[in-house]
Amino acid sequence: MRLGKMLSSYAIAALVSSSLFAAGGATHWGYTGHEAPQNWGELSPEYSTCKNGRSQSPINISKDGVVVTNGLENIEFNYKTDAVGIVNNGHTIQVDVKEGSSIKIDGTVFNLKQFHFHTPSENMIEGKSFPLELHFVHASKDAELAVVALMFEEGKENEILRKIWDKMPHSANAKAGCGLQSSMINEILPKDKSYFRFNGSLTTPPCSEGVRWFVLKNYATLSKEQIKEFFDVFGHENNRPTQPLNARKVMK
């Protein structure tokens, strides 16, 4: 069975669309109070995997669960289209990208749909949390999903994030133009694109499993002010806590 076949059509549409976290008719969820991550599995039968899944994301990547391979293949990045716009979907800031950008891994082309942010990071590395994590979300023609995650450390202001932050809407379901060129999207990525790899899930309801995860080992930076700017848009953290690794192994 292909990994993508494990994902419901709702889950796929949710992850790649600008209405990702507020799909029509879906049970509402959030990051605080009764709708917080620890309760997602109880909010709706559609979200039961959030509670019962065995390959959930995010995770803490630690040496105890890492398998050293003879060398993972390089991810072929082909980001060549500009951003369409920026969306505040009520749970994150999402940048939608025009069709035509992709990565290639496992002999499969995964088309870049959007990228979005979580503060603090969802995944951790050796127990370390980061102030921001970016997820590049991709889907293949067979509806398989791949997420490339990039961590940000506090440091120098990030010029590309500045262009996004200056235009990000502060109201839920609001949209704005972007003007972010493909060269700028590529500039966000580190030069060394080595990564950790594991099989996981969506980090938001319905928490469907069968998602390829690639967490880049090298980080970008953003300033303390930029961290606060993003946090202030929502007024709370928007990350799911790490989940048990169970029988999975992380490859590097």
Rank of each mutant, 00 (worst) to 15 (best):
E35P: 01
T242S: 13
E187I: 03
S62A: 14
A26V: 12
L222Y: 01
I105E: 01
G90C: 03
L202P: 00
S62H: 14
E133R: 00
H135N: 06
T32G: 10
R2K: 15
R248Y: 12
E35Y: 12
G107H: 10
A36L: 06
S19K: 12
F136W: 03
P58K: 01
K175M: 06
L7P: 01
T204I: 15
K141E: 11
A139K: 02
I61F: 07
R197C: 06
M184W: 04
H170C: 07
R240I: 12
V147A: 00
S19E: 13
V87E: 08
G24I: 12
E46C: 10
L7T: 11
P190A: 04
L112Q: 02
E237N: 14
F234L: 04
W165E: 08
T221W: 05
S182V: 03
G33D: 09
K141C: 01
S171W: 03
L222M: 10
S44T: 09
V16S: 07
T49V: 14
E46F: 08
W29A: 10
I185F: 02
C178D: 02
H116C: 09
K167D: 00
T108M: 10
N239G: 06
N158D: 12
P120I: 06
A26G: 09
N70A: 15
G177Q: 07
N123P: 03
L132D: 00
K249D: 12
H116L: 08
V67N: 12
T221N: 04
I93F: 05
A146Q: 00
C178Q: 01
V87Y: 04
L43I: 08
K228Y: 05
L112K: 02
Y79C: 09
H116G: 06
W40H: 08
T108G: 00
K252S: 15
A11N: 11
L20N: 09
V84L: 14
L134K: 01
S17L: 10
E157A: 08
A11T: 13
F198N: 02
A174C: 03
G235P: 04
A26C: 11
Y47N: 02
P206G: 09
K5A: 15
V67Y: 13
H118D: 03
K104T: 15
W213C: 08
W29P: 04
A23Y: 14
I61L: 11
E187A: 11
V16D: 08
D232A: 07
K217H: 06
S121N: 04
G100L: 08
A174I: 02
S102L: 04
S102P: 05
F234N: 00
V250G: 02
I185M: 05
P190W: 03
A146R: 00
T203G: 06
F198M: 05
E133N: 00
T69S: 15
T242Q: 09
N218L: 05
T242L: 09
G41H: 07
F110N: 02
F77E: 10
S9V: 15
D106R: 12
K163Y: 04
H170S: 12
Q114T: 14
F231M: 09
M1S: 15
P169C: 04
M124A: 10
K98C: 09
K193I: 11
I75D: 05
